[in-house]
Design a protein around this nucleic acid. Structure first.
Length: 481
RNA sequence: CGGGGCGUAGCGCAGUCCGGUUAGCGCGCGUCGUUCGGGACGACGAGGUCGGAGGUUCAAAUCCUCUCGCCCCGACCA
């Protein structure tokens, strides 16, 4: 912890992002290019992401399991589009125990193949369906260009894999899970998202439909924050996953897969962070309230520390994740800055004046300086007040991010308007009936891609912004991470 | 993989063009003292194979060759 000021966000977003990761002690670079060490504070955020997602998965009937890291290379080749999509970024193990392996092993880039291989052995009857499984795991994708949390050679995620009797059930599941992600992102992460379907070009390798939630970062670039796929019967046919239906006839299952990764930590940083550091949504914050004591002499110190201890217990008993920073070597001012860098949503200050009046000072991270500070808050009922404040911060962060997002999504009617909006860094929304080639052309000329066709669509139809043809839906274009 | 930049103390950098005492500075770190309501101050101190290898030279952080790594911008992607 060097304690230095970080690069201002407006000067160099990328530099700012990296500074935050270092200064808030979220992660460090690993010795191998493109790898990162997730440090305890960063990992704690991930643990809260896990906890909140896992609860939702269980509530929707899913169970956790674990599948192997190594996958026979031949498994990936069974699904044509899947292998084509992933082969450029595979890590292969060719030597084991000092001997050349007969068949190389793939370090999983995702687990559809190995999980579906197992599904084929487990699914016999319609009574075995639906099969709803999730796994928490690491995966490896040999990316060219890496960035902490957003794209690393190895990352942590969860991947859900399900099998159903009908297309309709699988489709419902794929959409249910993107809705679970949206609920999590917006309510726990305070990250507003636009949910929709990917274009054919952007659809997952091996899927028939890919759903996504797209979030706008502080530099207005888009980030795919979670995806859900309707895999149709592609893998079922590749792995012979069949069941006997009620009429004693063999049927292929219909499947989904869905994932959300440590990338979401990057989203939280880039959506909420400011020039003072991280701003964590209370529901994901490892520490929700930090107590900073203030004293001048030994007598005051004893009194203040006694009050701090009492306060800490009050808050902890009320279910607030609280920490007291009693380190003697730092001044209060230093600690204010330190915990602001760490993004702790609420700070409780307690000094001699407060002890005398049996009050505390509360400060909220989302509002800068004095505006977010309230003095003279009675200790009596302080836990309730802190809990309310945490809810207020949670809501405020979400509203702020949503206002920013909404202010930067622009409706466009022509290619010219689209170019202008993209050039200015915003998101462009417009009627689209273009072909894959048209989409590629837009990408080549503007570096923007179709992020999704939002579920939320305007009524009626309109002329395609590029071709002028009749379009039945709008697409959102943006430059993305 | 193309383009650009950079490797000197934990972090940020100066020194490199033009070779020459014991390689500096700020922050951080340790001890002691004074401090403490928005990044305190003083004194003393610890910390370096100058990314690596080879070469040129009386002498290399500095010049030459090779090499490794990291960051940024592109193409590819959660």
């Amino acid at each position: 912890m060097s304690g230095q000021a970080i690069t201002p966000r407006s000067v160099d977003f990328s530099g700012w992002y990296q500074d935050i990761i270092r200064e808030a002690e979220l992660a460090d670079y690993g010795p191998v290019r493109g790898t990162m060490v997730i440090r305890p504070y960063g990992y704690a955020i991930w643990e809260h992401i896990q906890r909140n997602l896992d609860r939702r998965f269980k509530e929707t009937g899913h169970v956790n399991a674990y599948f192997p890291l190594f996958i026979p290379y031949s498994f990936l080749q069974k699904e044509k589009e899947h292998i084509e999509g992933f082969s450029p970024e595979l890590a292969l193990v060719t030597v084991g125990g000092g001997k050349e392996l007969e068949e190389p092993l793939v370090v999983r880039p995702t687990s559809e193949t190995i999980i579906n291989y197992m599904f084929a052995r487990w699914i016999k009857s319609h009574r075995d369906l639906p099969l709803l499984i999730n796994q928490w795991a690491n995966v490896v994708r040999w990316e060219m260009r890496t960035r902490p949390f957003l794209r690393t050679l190895e990352f942590l995620w969860q991947e859900g894999h399900t099998a159903h009797a009908t297309y309709e059930e699988a489709e419902a599941e794929a959409q249910r899970m993107i809705e679970v992600y949206r609920d999590f992102a917006e309510n726990d992460g305070a990250v507003p998202v636009i949910v929709g379907r990917k274009s054919r070009l952007e659809t997952f390798a091996g899927a028939i439909h890919t759903y996504t939630m797209e979030a706008m970062m502080g530099d207005k670039r888009a980030l795919q924050a979670g995806t859900s796929h309707n895999l149709g019967q592609n893998f079922a046919k590749a792995f012979e996953i069949r069941y006997l239906d009620e009429h004693n006839e063999l049927q292929y299952v219909w499947q989904t897969s869905w994932g959300l990764s440590t990338r979401f930590v990057g989203a939280v940083i880039m959506v909420h962070g400011d020039d003072k550091g991280l701003r964590l949504p209370p529901r994901l914050a490892p520490i929700q309230a930090v107590i900073v004591p203030i004293w001048r002499d030994e007598a005051q110190r004893a009194n203040v520390l006694a009050a701090v201890e009492q306060l800490q217990r009050l808050l902890a008993d009320a279910g607030v994740r609280v920490e007291a920073d009693v380190r003697p070597q730092h001044t209060p001012g230093w600690k204010f800055n330190y915990w602001e860098m760490k993004g702790v949503p609420v700070r409780v200050e307690i000094g001699p004046r407060d002890v005398e009046t049996n009050t505390v000072v509360l400060a909220r991270r989302d509002m800068p300086g004095k505006a977010g500070k309230t003095a003279g808050v009675p200790v009596e009922g302080v836990a309730e007040r802190v809990r309310e404040l945490l809810d207020e911060v949670q809501t405020a962060l979400f509203e702020q991010a949503r206002a920013f997002r909404d202010a930067n999504v622009h409706d466009v009617r022509s290619y010219e308007e689209l170019r202008e909006v993209i050039q200015a860094g915003g998101w462009a929304r417009g009627w689209w009936a273009g072909s894959d080639e048209d989409e590629l052309r837009v990408k080549e000329e503007t570096r923007a891609t179709i992020r999704c066709f939002p579920f939320e669509q305007p009524d009626g139809e309109g002329p395609c912004l590029l071709t002028g043809k009749k379009a039945e839906r709008v697409a959102i274009f943006a430059r993305a991470y």
